[in-house]
Design a binder for these strands. Structure first.
Lengths: 217, 217
DNA sequence: ATAAAAATTTAGACTAGTCTAAAAAAATAT
DNA sequence: ATATTTTTTTAGACTAGTCTAAATTTTTAT
């Protein structure tokens, strides 16, 4: 049984593993966890002796099959709770992340099974992220950052990369939420800002924002 | 902001304060928390400097107005979550205590407000215990142990004192759950066991069980 | 190929919470 | 009223997780 803290490290390592197939570096984990490299070294030793990751000094960390399975269960819980908060308790899309960060650590397989059932076995959460099933199987919808599309692209928003509350609030305000239809009208060469159409409205978004909007391809 | 552990101590002290108006003793808290007296001494010093309790060496502990208010919020959360688990997720009455022990520590006033609303502002939880409102006001239903009633008593079960899972399972099996009609038919002098009628069935229960069934008076 | 810079690990210290064993205070019994 | 027992507190140690500062290893630059 993992502690609250161990679970958070494992989740961070899983996410870092997904973006790039190379070993995850100590400093990357430190940044993701808002902690210091020295603390990370201690923790990865611990997770390594428990066989959730493999660790080679000065080289980095790789998540094990067992670690991935554990991480997927935490992510499953997080996304089911987010779905509950938005669909049942009528929270806004952008208010649920921090609460789900807490709820994801509740220990009770039966609870998650019943919650899943209560929600009608949803396949994705309110941010458009896929929810792993009880065996940890995850159906990845194929998506790419809007920023990497060409002018003329028309499709729908799959998810938002960054969970930053300010970003989510902003996207909510302009109507750019998962599931929405979106079109890329033009690209400004100078600062790589994009002119888009969403919610029947034309507007301009920055490169930073466009890199965080993942759209169906 | 209180830690997980501080919250659990405070809740235990609150409950011990309610049963008896005297100061709460170190050993009582140690037993309630399944810990050692030395650990309790450390913690009550801490809660005392934070003004949740007043503490006099070798004498005992009294909960403060502030401590009571904090404890009531935790209890409110616990009972709302229990209600959710039983009414929405269809858990059995006797399965929810341990899960609610975890959920009660989730920090988000907005979450509790919305949960309360989702449940239709319930006044009592599935065990029959009253749910404090958002100001900590608690409407005590007047009740007494079935054991203290006289043969001939007829009324309904308000709540069950002990949260022990085996007791709850047993009561569930015989149909003696909060809200149910119950009648006291006879009292056996020798071992103080009771003959009762519940769920249209006659049966005998021990003194220990009868002391834990609280009925409306 | 070596010097400088960056990343990582180690060493040692700190807080929160816990424990055992010993000391001190309070309650009880004679 | 004093001795014994019980309760409570203190002292010191341990684990989990964190930090800073110093040491070490790897990478980068010349």
């Amino acid at each position: 049984m993992l502690s609250f803290t161990e679970e958070n490290y494992l989740k961070a390592i899983y996410h870092l593993s997904e973006s790039g197939s190379k070993a995850v570096l100590t400093n990357e984990i430190a940044e993701a966890m808002s902690t210091k490299a020295a603390s990370v070294t201690d923790m990865i030793k611990k997770l390594s002796t428990k066989n959730f990751i493999s660790y080679e000094k000065y080289y980095g960390v790789k998540i094990s099959r067992q670690g991935k399975s554990e991480a997927l269960m935490i992510i499953r819980k997080h996304r089911l709770w987010e779905t509950f908060l938005v669909e049942k308790l009528l929270f806004n899309w952008d208010e649920v992340h921090d609460i789900a960060e807490q709820l994801e650590h509740i220990q009770s397989p039966l609870l998650i099974q019943k919650l899943d059932e209560f929600l009608g076995f949803p396949k994705s959460d309110p941010h458009g992220e896929p929810i792993p099933d009880k065996n940890g199987k995850i159906s990845m919808p194929s998506s790419m950052p809007l920023h990497d599309q060409l002018p003329g692209y028309a499709g729908s928003i799959v998810s938002v990369k960054d969970s930053d509350s300010n970003l989510l609030k902003y996207l909510n305000r302009i109507g750019a939420t998962p599931g929405k239809k979106i079109r890329l009208l033009a690209k400004e060469e100078y600062d790589e800002s994009l002119e888009i159409e969403v919610d029947e409205k034309r507007l301009t978004i920055s490169k930073a924002v466009a890199q965080n909007i993942l759209v169906a391809v």
